[in-house]
Design a binder for these strands. Structure first.
Lengths: 111, 111
DNA sequence: CATTAATACAACCGTATGGTTGTATCAAGC
DNA sequence: GCTTGATACAACCATACGGTTGTATTAATG
């Protein structure tokens, strides 16, 4: 059920084009691991590992659906990552007064 | 002058707490490399390398200011990263019709 | 219940990453 | 123009990462 979201893991997971593409495809949430794997020019096991990275980061989840395991993007995790970037921008625009208090590595945020 | 923004590099750069903290501090844009380095429990060279990673990703720039080189966050790059996440969320909310056309790895976006 | 499609996991390999120390360059200031 | 504060860069090390192949587990289905 994923505890605290770890920005290190989230951003590291997003730092790979294949994984971002998996995230995008898994938004639809209708493909299993091997179906996803078919889209990429690498082994099934490699894609499986990519999905595992995304899963550990909390960006996707797997749900058994018949004999497959369907991969589903966790939009909440994406939203949290986006909000961190938002706050940097707000900081820049000067909307926030006390810099130090706001972003003290919000690693302890819960989703 | 930084050409195309590479999401791999941007997200990889953000996948480290020290670097995110540097990004945050460099929003103020008033600290040089060694001043930044003082905040972290690692060698000056290590921080220098972190800044180099951020610079290569286009997230910060350095400008000579007196005898120091002041580090300055490039908010535009942050905004582009945020926009990618935005689009995933929009995709999820079903606001966009033809999935395939929209996010085909927008790596070729210019800033 | 035996088969087999689908997924998981382990071992391995080359390269990248994050840190270190040491040396070199650069530009202010005396 | 020499000194020195500030930054850059190279070499090195341990560990993590992205890929491979091979084997094991799981659970629908005939």
């Amino acid at each position: 059920m994923q505890t605290a979201l770890d920005f290190d893991q989230v951003f590291a997971a997003l730092a790979d084009a294949t994984r971002r593409d998996i995230v995008r495809r898994a938004i639809a949430g209708d493909e299993g691991v091997s179906e996803l794997a078919d889209h990429y020019p690498m082994s099934f096991a490699a894609v499986q590992k990519h999905i595992a990275v995304l899963e550990r980061a909390g960006l996707v989840t797997k749900h058994r659906r018949g004999r497959r395991k369907v991969v589903h993007t966790n939009v909440a995790a994406l939203a949290l990552a986006r909000r961190l970037l938002d706050r940097y921008e707000e900081l820049w625009r000067g909307r926030i007064d006390r810099m130090s208090e706001i972003i003290n590595e919000t690693e302890e945020d819960r989703q």
